[in-house]
Design a protein around this nucleic acid. Structure first.
Lengths: 243, 243
DNA sequence: CGTTGACTTGATAAAGCTCAAATTTGGTGG
DNA sequence: CCACCAAATTTGAGCTTTATCAAGTCAACG
């Protein structure tokens, strides 16, 4: 499906969080040609060591950046949903240092590097916005690092739940702390660097502390304040403090 | 010491790794005015939650990005040495999401945001180079994350030693795997998210496996191939695969 | 209604933490 | 140069967290 893009408003919304764009810049982004594709769960859309010629804008669903270690273990580096272009780096780096796989069925709009490079060359504001987007991304990486490095498994998992909730809330404009988790316990384990069995036990701990209920992938955050406080969740890294 | 900068060639060298610069761009960078300062060990040069109006270019010594958690623990996010501007983010984000402290005595050149913004606005190549610099930085963060998340303490520490060696080798053009570690065991612990006592035991393990000798902060990598292989060190994240 | 993948629980082992007490090292003043 | 101090390193013992292996149960879906 090659189409004149009606979807880029999602991306524009994301860019506007980090930067300001002129009308002509918005128009330019809106006139991008994209190749929209539905993709199943558990498919790689970007592969480590390949040289892609387009970036992927997520229109629906969830994807994860990851790397596979020599011993076969998988480390997730970040999760992304609607409005994200997780491989924007590809405009400058090839091959990338990570792969991206789908965590749920997704709808993705592929945008050619050529078009994006033209935007960057012609619109300073877009170039700056992309740079800032990269900066926001790196702040999120740092937040994950802190989460993995120096927190107990229980707090780290709580933090991950908080992050996922906020990301859903941003996209769906919901206040309701009741949502479907896009990831399995195995994927949580690979995000936090702990074993799947331990993830399960730690979920029990969160249940016992009356912080969440979780059944059939449906999580309910029973007490947001208490949960966020428990894991010292500070959502500012998800919008950033851009000047 | 406010001085017409003779030091920016160090930074230019770093930028050239990730991007190309025109003669006029190089000239513009060379004419930056910097405020050069000698600073002792264990001093914060950038503080979390402050709003700095300049960036710091490291001319000598080592610094570390870090964050303090509510329980008082410190998590190092990256280490930097000659030629790095670890707080380049500050051009777009305020306050920053991390602090930067000196790990050794350092010499730092402070460059005002105003000057840097002028460069960005007037020279597209510089703007792109800075963006790419940010991208290289985020790849290094991902490498650390993988290191912390899914490797044993022993391999993680070996990886850190490899990284530090390569960074020294780049600056000093040395082949000799014999160098002074810029960080204490406590700092290693805070980088890897393990306890100082365990760092010490893990160093012993590396010694017993005949991979290194280490005494009075002087480390000798006895068998580079073996060490790099042991921890699956791939130095490409330190130069990147820029197009 | 059977199969498959995800989740759950138990038992045991390994990795890493904490506390505490040496010992070594690097610097500093006399 | 020596004595001394503070910081860093080293070692031991016991404990906590997390991993691993194994054997379930549950739930979705054709």
């Amino acid at each position: 499906m090659l189409e004149k893009n009606e979807n880029s408003h999602i991306f524009i919304k994301k860019l506007k969080i980090v930067s300001s764009l002129s009308d002509s810049e918005i128009k330019a982004i809106n006139s991008l040609q994209t190749f929209v594709k539905k993709i199943d769960k558990d498919i790689d859309i970007v592969s480590f060591k390949e040289n892609p010629s387009s970036c992927c804008l997520i229109l629906d669903g969830w994807v994860g950046r990851y790397r596979i270690l020599v011993d076969g273990k998988r480390q997730f580096l970040s999760f992304h949903t609607v409005g994200d272009i997780p491989d924007l780096h590809g405009l400058h780096v090839s091959p990338l240092d990570y792969s991206i796989c789908t965590l749920t069925p997704v709808i993705v709009a592929f945008i050619s590097h050529d078009q994006l490079r033209e935007l960057i060359n012609n619109f300073k504001g877009i170039s700056t916005a992309f740079w800032r987007y990269t900066i926001a991304d790196s702040a999120a990486l740092r937040a994950w690092m802190v989460n993995m490095g120096h927190r107990t498994a229980c707090k780290a998992l709580a933090h991950l739940f908080c992050e996922i909730f906020i990301k859903i809330a941003i996209v769906e404009h919901k206040e309701d702390k009741n949502f479907r988790l896009p990831i399995t316990q195995i994927e949580m384990a690979d995000a936090l660097g702990i074993s799947p069995v331990h993830v399960n036990r730690v979920i029990n701990e969160l249940r016992e502390n009356d912080l969440i209920t979780l059944k059939s992938r449906f999580i309910k955050i029973k007490n947001w304040e208490k949960l966020a406080n428990f894991c010292n969740f500070d959502p500012s890294y998800l919008h950033g403090n851009f000047i």
